[in-house]
């Protein structure tokens, strides 16, 4: 091996350190970041859907549930396109959005990119959107700025409040603001008491709770700390059928926990890994949305991947004792 002079030694050292740092940084940070984030802008879905093609009925409802769609990127457009194709095959009049409508900026500036463009076919078809506030919808810890962001989103979507209930056919929906301090902070009792009253007074056949942060999740964020103690007993006591959430960027369905089935449908534009836990019935790190058909006392859910493949199908029966 030739002897190195001082400059060669310095440059070679710099190159060696740089090679190690670059290899480590690319492999463990930058490439995973590129794969995880959905930064490349995507084309607007071009489908034209028949308006109002669903059939409203007292005993049936078809709806879609999706969360974490807010990139405006190619993956978000692919999921939105699949949702539009899902409407073609089985029309629905409602999308429950499980939060994180907007990443990388304020919703006032990016609403067209992250919502209007991807959802254009469904919007034009007259589909209604109902939002459960997510942590990227104004960041956590409700500062004045984040509250303004949340207010902007609610106003843009025509959503009535941060927590609210709606009724469609045989299903009552209960939307929560699950961010901190919305549900897990000092003033959590306000929303919990509201939820308890709303669930108690619900007489419809199905009760579906929609919130951004999952009570149970085996993904990157995991189960929301405190949710099992604070929320799970209430949901079980009030005989909720299904809890829909996002936050983790994967699909997961639990076995019924005290009669309640929990679903994470957060693959709206990004994917993060999931390792099935003790409560997991099905899980997949994939871009997806949930297509739900309710007919009488039977609910059928399908988690549909962006390429149309069904990654999970499940069926629930309305809980007795109403």
């Amino acid at each position: 091996m030739p002897a190195l002079n001082r400059r060669q030694f310095l440059a070679a050292s710099l190159g060696a350190v740089g090679s190690v740092a670059a290899g480590t940084g690319l492999g463990s940070q930058l490439w995973p970041l590129m794969g995880r984030e959905d930064l490349v802008p995507g084309r607007t879905p071009e489908l034209v859907l028949p308006a109002g093609a669903w059939s409203p009925a007292a005993d049936r409802l078809t709806f879609a549930a999706v969360g974490d769609t807010g990139s405006g990127g190619r993956q978000a457009m692919a999921v939105a396109d699949r949702m539009a194709r899902g409407y073609q095959d089985s029309p629905y009049g409602l999308v429950t959005h499980l939060g994180d409508l907007c990443y990388y900026g304020s919703v006032e500036d990016r609403f067209d990119d992250v919502f209007t463009r991807p959802m254009r076919p469904l919007i034009d078809a007259g589909v209604a959107f109902e939002l459960a506030i997510g942590n990227h919808d104004g960041a956590l810890h409700h500062s004045d700025a984040s509250l303004a962001e949340i207010d902007a989103e609610l106003r843009l979507l025509g959503t009535p409040a941060r927590h609210y209930t709606t009724s469609h056919g045989p299903v009552d929906f209960f939307y929560l603001d699950s961010s901190t301090p919305g549900l897990f902070g000092d003033d959590a009792s306000v929303q919990l008491e509201w939820l308890d009253d709303a669930l108690a007074s619900s007489t419809n056949q199905w009760k579906v709770v929609c919130m951004h942060h999952p009570v149970y999740s085996s993904g990157a964020h995991g189960s929301t700390p405190g949710a099992d103690e604070l929320l799970e007993p209430l949901l079980a006591d009030r005989r909720v059928d299904l809890v829909l959430s996002g936050h983790d960027h994967h699909y997961e369905r639990t076995h019924p926990v005290d009669g309640v089935t929990y679903v994470v449908s957060g693959g709206g534009c990004k994917t993060t890994p999931v390792r099935p836990g003790r409560f997991t019935a099905a899980a997949s790190s994939t871009l997806q949305y949930l297509h739900v058909d309710v007919v009488g006392d039977r609910l059928t859910g399908r988690s549909v991947r962006a390429d149309g493949r069904v990654v999970d199908r499940f069926e629930l029966r309305a809980r007795e004792g109403r």
Binding site: M34, G35, R74, A78, T271, T286, L287, A306
Partner: peptide
């Protein structure tokens, strides 16, 4: 490599050739 990383992430998510 960066474009391959993006494409493989899309593949894993179920959108082969679209990312």
């Amino acid at each position: 490599a960066p474009a391959v990383v993006l494409e493989s992430a899309g593949d894993r998510g179920g959108v082969r050739g679209a990312v």
